[in-house]
Design a protein around this nucleic acid. Structure first.
Lengths: 134, 134
DNA sequence: TTAAGTAAGACTCTTTTAGTCTGGTATTAT
DNA sequence: ATAATACCAGACTAAAAGAGTCTTACTTAA
């Protein structure tokens, strides 16, 4: 509950790694999965998503790999989450799936306060930039 | 991901209901599960936990039920989460299970920034009082 | 042309969450 | 007393999400 997925963790680790440890060279998925001892395949998929969302750039073929697509100051934790998950997750179904999905709906007495919490949460993740992750 | 469990939702709904709709009478688990159309059994278990943690009071026997154990200003969303989950959940395993549980550990490059986010998150949930949930 | 890399999606296994069932205990109206 | 009503407790099952694996295909430098 209230936990980040491994995909997000791996995405953060990878982007942070590219920003700091391999700031001046292209790094491979294998390099990262080895160093941090995480699943190569899962990491690879995460990197593919980050590539699609133009947070990192992929270099194909031999001597290929990945590098950041923008400055570390321009990437927030929220960007990474959204890129991997499709959109920023809601703390209740109402917020992720839309109000129709909720059977409580008209009787719901907690939607408003949770909305405030949701906003606050999103702001928290938006505030943390990769450049600050040091 | 990052979602509150149904138990938490039900706990919030129930406490908010007691604080507002049934402020002056004891209400039963059935009354709540009927009104909000949620699982009676699951709600019942949640209410039992809230009772153990002295957030609500249970009244046994015929004409029994539940009522708040304290003022709505004294109960925060964080209290309810902690009562139901045992302790406030961590956004990564490191924070819930302790650092030993994490195989990345020494190489981990994201623990510190996530710690800040965790703190922020906890504060957010601590700030929202049941009395404000109107 | 081959080795080293990414791309993509199907598939399986595990864990967590949600929900159900069964048998109990406590209290009170009758 | 006794029966009805409501809480208590824990085992059990089902469903959904998450994590990880496997296979095949594409790209490019040497």
């Amino acid at each position: 509950m209230l936990k980040l997925s491994k995909k997000i963790e791996y995405g953060l680790i990878a982007v942070r790694h590219m920003a700091v440890d391999s700031a001046n060279h292209i790094c491979t998925a294998k390099e990262i999965s080895d160093k941090y001892k995480i699943s190569y395949e899962l990491l690879a998929k995460v990197l593919q998503k980050l590539t699609k969302e133009k947070i990192i750039i992929s270099h194909q073929g031999m001597n290929g790999g990945y590098s950041l697509a923008k400055n570390a100051e321009e990437i927030t934790v929220s960007h990474i989450i959204t890129a991997i998950e499709g959109k920023f997750p809601g703390i209740v179904e109402c917020f992720s799936e839309g109000p129709e999905s909720c059977c409580i709906s008209e009787n719901c007495n907690i939607k408003n306060p949770l909305g405030k919490i949701q906003t606050n949460l999103e702001r928290t993740f938006q505030t943390m930039k990769v450049s600050e992750m040091v």
